[in-house]
Amino acid sequence: MSHDGRPALELDDVCAAYGPYRALFGVSFSVDKGAATALLGPNGAGKSTVARVVSGLLPASSGHVRVGGSDVTGKPPWAIARMGLSHVPEGRGVFDSLSVEENLVLSFRRRAGRRNLAASLERAYARFPLLAERRHHRAGTLSGGQQRLLSLAKVLVVPPGVLVADELSLGLAPGVVDDVYAALADVRASGTTLVVVEQQVDRALGLASSAVVLEHGSVAYFGPSSGARAVVAEVLERRSHPGVADRR
């Protein structure tokens, strides 16, 4: 990430498929270093697929993904993660069978180093006292919101270069969503480049400076977040009247 001016994350004409089922059709966009981008779109538009292609979980069938200017297409997820990209997946993103502390150790040992392990744990517990209380409980016994906070505690203490957060608000009570977004704002303040996949458009646009709107696996809009709201409304309108979409 030493080259200034290069985007922190760049997708160039990316296509992807689950077996025979194609999900992305030539997706291109880029995110500047330190910026926050909202990835919006209706269900099934390919938002999570974009996140998976970026982190390497799903290989792109064509096109290129660049992190900090270097091509990561075809690299395994662990190699991409070591380049400073962190992906918090949709739904459960923690190890159920491990304790809260073991979850944190697994993350910190690699990214903060063995020496800073104890200090990192302390900072995580100071920021989220609830996790300190539950440190020896199995992560599977935490509530959905607490699991999401545990995922965020990992990236908050040792901020990654790029964070791809997939549907962090999904299935959470509004109050808990506030906590999650407060934590996300902290991550952004530490200089991390953010890509936020979100269904709740207002939440995401409040945080992000630019936005990408996906429709049927293609980019329908890429630009400043101020223009995204109208496009999202348009896309949803087309979805509820399929005939209109066909004439497009």
Partner: peptide
């Protein structure tokens, strides 16, 4: 133990699962 539960989740932590 983490890899047994989810190899992919472990890879996201930067571990060669």
């Amino acid at each position: 133990r983490a890899a047994a539960e989810s190899s992919r989740l472990l890879e996201l932590e930067g571990v060669d699962a």
